[in-house]
């Protein structure tokens, strides 16, 4: 892993990947939308409303994935002081916050017709809202110091402390009575979703992941270029 922590080497690998992940993301999301809207059945209980799942669930997965990545990068920044680790954590935060917001909004839109309420303070919904605030808090903290090095360190500590929330979100539906139903995909027996509905769900998950990688590479690249501009300005 440490071999790739060199910014120049990272860009040499990431730059050629970028067009593939971008095109792949667009293709997977369009395919997922096609299957999700036109070529998948209505649910036996929920009817057409079930289609919200094809956006809601992959967005929620990405919200957890981006935070996990952010916490890992923050940890390796604190321990090994890799500047690239700090950059990736900072680059991942707004993307993760965006996916969390999508999950919260689509969840409310889904909850209103199905549960009969936009929002309840059950363990799952509340812990995801906390995740959203952790993202916002991280972004504010990182930029809240005159010394950017200090901001990075403070943000990394917050990201690590907040990581405890990720397993809480995942297992909240098993540990406590919640209005939110338990997981369908990661059950030990077969997933509780019919194959015709699994196709758009997994396609969207792949699309979101590729989208995340593309934006992450772009954001890291911008930060690296900004750093170079700053150092050039300082030397002249």
């Amino acid at each position: 892993m440490h071999r790739f922590a060199n910014p120049a080497r990272f860009m040499r690998i990431a730059e050629p990947i970028l067009p593939w992940t971008s095109v792949g993301a667009l293709a997977a999301i369009l395919l997922a939308l096609y299957f999700g809207i036109f070529d998948s059945p209505a649910d036996y209980q929920q009817g057409e409303t079930v289609r919200i799942m094809y956006v809601h669930v992959p967005a929620a997965w990405m919200a957890l994935f981006a935070y996990t990545l952010m916490a890992l990068a923050s940890g390796s920044f604190l321990i090994w002081k890799h500047p690239l680790a700090d950059l990736s954590a900072q680059a991942a935060a707004p993307i993760g916050a965006g996916f969390t917001a999508i999950a919260l909004v689509t969840g409310a839109l889904w909850g209103q017709p199905m549960w009969g309420t936009w929002w309840v303070w059950d363990a799952r919904l509340t812990s995801v809202l906390i995740l959203f605030f952790l993202y916002l808090g991280y972004m504010a903290l990182v930029n809240g110091f005159d010394d950017p090095e200090r901001g990075s360190r403070m943000g990394a500590i917050l990201a690590l402390v907040g990581f405890i929330n990720v397993p809480i979100i995942k297992f909240s539906v098993d540990w406590w009575n919640t209005l939110h139903q338990p997981a369908s995909i990661s059950r030990l027996d077969a997933p509780a979703i019919d194959t015709s509905m699994l196709i758009p769900l997994l396609l969207m998950a792949i699309g979101f992941k590729l989208f995340f990688i593309s934006i992450l590479i772009l954001r890291i690249k911008i930060q690296l270029l900004k750093k170079r501009i700053r150092s050039i300005q300082l030397t002249h």
Partner: peptide, 18 residues
């Protein structure tokens, strides 16, 4: 005062359920 519906984690088309 309020009644909320809870749904389970099973998703399938009507024909499969039947």
């Amino acid at each position: 005062k309020h009644v909320l519906a809870k749904h389970d984690e099973n998703y399938m088309p009507k024909e499969v359920a039947d």
